[in-house]
Design a protein around this nucleic acid. Structure first.
Lengths: 247, 247
DNA sequence: CGGAGGCTTGAAGCCTTTCAAATTACGTGG
DNA sequence: CCACGTAATTTGAAAGGCTTCAAGCCTCCG
């Protein structure tokens, strides 16, 4: 478990102003930092496995993750879940709800987490006065669309080994952007969640981990992962290399 | 080929006002009709296989399809294309570009088509004065996110036959919403494009078509498709039924 | 008529899933 | 602190579905 002070070592909890600066500083481009400083909002704790919002719940707020990790998922007609994304500190939750009156997916915490609640109605009021704020908001929505398109690319025509490599490299880059080690981090989600997200079974994920481990690409201890050969993993992710099956 | 007058039998070409009403009337909710009436913009013809915009091209306009069909696609690192969507009259192109300075995908016409060019800069000016306009715009962006999430669901955990059924039912619903027959329509895209979109090979698409045809679910004549048993196809799409392999 | 591109069909092979079982973690209560 | 039961993960073997490779057909158009 990660404590608040580890992530925000110099933060003064509850400081009225600058909350959003801190919320967003980690996740967005330099230029996007602080774009929400003007909006008001309160914090909310979400315990592990607890849901931040549910599908079909009326849409009121966006949520900026202060610390912790979340997954978003929906259900198909057969009642099986499909995970559509994993989110970490500094990222925004709830954008899908803009399409209608209700949330279109569920968001659940993967560990004890905290978010900033951003009432969308007050955000809309601000948009009229702050064109720059609106522009940044549109950029974030565009990024969400782009992110999902990348995921389509992944699910559409990558083999299992490439999918998993892309997954690891993506996590690595996001942790790096937040100032954490890009080569050693903890998986906050289960193997099952990873498989679900990548369109693979839990067994396939397990086999891939063993394979990467045996080839010296990875060190794995439970959910603690170390990228031993990041470059080789990137080559796998790019599809320029292949990883031989286990001896 | 479909002519302009077939789609807009009562249209007065070049009528200065109401252009956007016509652009959007087909694709959006009743409530969304005409939300762009205030914006200025000019028309642009795009011939078959011609590109409306390219990846990495600077972002200036959104495009509303007046008539015709488009596909959007990107390239992975190996240079293969992945189609991320097919768009028809009344739908909006270019939203992904909001994430940055440039378009993030390519858009190509599947047949001779026409679009309304909507300069995004002037749209942004309008947003400040028209909160309702902004709200509708956000809804459309949200719909795009939701649409892609649905596609993730499809690619993530559906078998080939279910994917193809979903594809057909989706087309059917969209044509129905535009006042066309939901059970008889022409595929504007090649088998190869369909396969690419669904994460399958062209051979798989061909085999699925033959299978559905032999089971009496479908009539197929080149690209002309008739849904003989729409309900059965919907059951396949929902995953509640399965279609036996060919005898 | 001929050529090119799009489509169909068959057979073989591979990758991933499915099914099954064993192993390892983890939380709870004794 | 240990025992136990449950959940998560690993591993193996077999089956299945989709792809790959190959060949042939159809259709459009010059």
């Amino acid at each position: 478990m990660i404590s608040y002070s580890q992530i925000y070592p110099d933060a003064q909890p509850r400081s009225a102003s600058g909350i959003y600066r801190r919320c967003f500083a980690l996740g967005l481009d330099q230029a996007d930092i602080g774009w929400l400083d003007h909006a008001a909002g309160c914090r909310r704790r979400v315990g592990r496995d607890e849901r931040l919002f549910r599908m079909d719940q009326p849409f009121r707020n966006l949520y900026a993750i202060r610390f912790g990790h979340f997954k978003t998922y929906q259900f198909n007609s057969a009642g099986e879940q499909q995970i559509t994304g994993f989110q970490m500190a500094g990222e925004l939750l709830g954008l899908d709800a803009l399409s209608g009156e209700c949330h279109q997916c569920n968001a659940a915490a993967l560990e004890d987490s905290e978010v900033c609640e951003i009432p969308f109605a007050s955000l809309e009021l601000l948009f009229a006065r702050e064109p720059e704020l609106l522009r940044r908001f549109h950029r974030i929505m565009g990024q969400e669309i782009t992110r999902e398109q990348d995921l389509l690319l992944l699910l559409g025509n990558m083999r299992a080994e490439q999918r998993f490599a892309v997954f690891l490299i993506n996590l690595s880059a996001r942790y790096a952007a937040r100032g954490y080690s890009p080569t050693a981090f903890q998986l906050r989600m289960s193997r099952e969640d990873i498989g679900n997200y990548l369109g693979l079974t839990i067994e396939s994920i397990s086999r891939l981990m063993s394979r990467f481990k045996n080839q010296g690409l990875l060190k794995v201890d439970k959910r603690e992962v170390t990228l031993v050969q990041p470059a080789a993993l990137e080559a796998l992710a790019a599809g320029t290399e292949h990883c031989k099956p286990m001896s």
